[in-house]
Design a protein around this nucleic acid. Structure first.
Lengths: 227, 227
DNA sequence: CAGGAAAAAATTTGATCATATTCTGTCCGC
DNA sequence: GCGGACAGAATATGATCAAATTTTTTCCTG
């Protein structure tokens, strides 16, 4: 619908001046990450040109990028859809996330300024609000923002990029799980992470992150149907 | 130049029937992986439309995918070029490759059939030929084929995908290193990998893979200028 | 005569291209 | 050295063609 909204990450950049294909990409990325698109749902180019009000070239480019990200899959017969995860997929992602993201959180431990730790804590408090309100979309957004903010201090853009790629893959499925279970049983080891950050104990930060990841991903593995 | 060539992976699929943007993507991917493109070199859309003989839409889509892969970078002011790696980039990739690819090789150990191990050995023999001939391009191609073939038996497409993404990033830089040092000092722990595979000793396969990776990447780190 | 399968037409969607517009970087004159 | 015009390249649109899915029609069988 509205292209200019819903990316709080790029702080002050002129959104209007962004090229259209970039805006389409960011819009779709948000919709995928935060579960506005259902797994298995087909994504059509012409549907997007209509709903987003841009030509087909920007849409095509955005879709190609998202396919490359693994956020969308090309179904052979020129159909594009949101991926459905198999048990094996989830198991692989657990391994990859544990490898990459625990390292990212360890690396952030020494470098993150105290003020940013406070910022993380505020994020986590908002996140608790979302959980008690049962706002799944808000939970997904803030959970992503929390991890992103933490990892951004690791000074490791390539690893962050790999992590982001993984998040794009399991975003839609995570939404389903949350929708099924409600927000109550959602993982939140964030308080452990924050206190370990305050202690500047990289090992403990890594362990807490691993628990957070493992908890969330295991829930996905046990909930989703195995195709 | 020639679109139909140079992908030995997709075995029998009709190459002619592939859409043009896919062919352009594969072509550029090969050129990047095997160092036909120099880091820092600008990549222009119109230059590619001329040299590949296709319209600009397929070229644009292929470029977007490759940017998403990290194989090309968008330099802000509408310029696209082959990335130049910093020391930090390489260090991150060492970590990521060690995490992902050693796991892939460990997972392959139990599953790879004996006949395929023989096939790997043949690949490695050809690779030795390339090294003694001083054929850098051939070395890069066969080295990639060797790892790809090994990992393909791990039954872990998501991890393979992450690994491929990393290879695309360091391909051009690896070419530079090889060009500077010649092929003599190139890493080849493949014989250790093969004998460990024959023993079905996953741990040893992982260690040999780690040594192979560490050797190659360390050479890159020590050779490239730090920008 | 009814039900269903196969074939054919129609519609929807994707792929490519040619063209117009906008932006960036450069070069020349002041 | 600075400012404006120019050239070149990238972005975006709409038109056109091809492919695939869906719907309709037809024909055969029970």
């Amino acid at each position: 619908m509205d292209l200019i909204k819903n990316n709080a990450d790029t702080a002050l950049t002129d959104r209007e001046k962004q090229p259209a294909h970039e805006q389409v990409y960011q819009t779709l990325k948000s919709q995928i990450l935060f579960g506005d698109l259902v797994p298995g749902q087909p994504v059509t180019i012409q549907g997007l040109t209509d709903s987003l009000g841009v030509g087909m070239t920007p849409v095509r480019e955005a879709i190609r990028r998202l396919i490359s990200d693994g956020a969308l899959i090309f179904q052979g017969n020129r159909r594009v859809s949101v991926p459905l995860l198999s048990a094996s997929d989830i198991e692989q992602m657990i391994f990859a996330r544990l490898s990459i993201e625990t390292e990212l959180s360890r690396r952030s431990t020494d470098k993150i300024p105290a003020a940013e730790i406070d910022q993380l804590e505020r994020l986590d408090q908002q996140l608790d609000g979302m959980i008690s309100d049962g706002d799944v979309g808000g939970y997904l957004r803030l959970n992503h923002a929390f991890h992103q903010a933490l990892y951004s201090h690791a000074d490791a853009p390539i690893l962050v990029d790999l992590a982001e790629r993984l998040w794009l893959k399991f975003g839609p499925s995570l939404r389903i799980v949350c929708g099924r279970f409600g927000t109550q049983s959602l993982p939140d080891r964030h308080k452990d992470i924050i206190s370990a950050l305050r202690d500047r104990d990289a090992e403990k930060v890594g362990i807490a992150t691993a628990q957070d990841i493992d908890q969330g991903m295991s829930m996905m593995r046990d909930t989703l149907p195995n195709p």
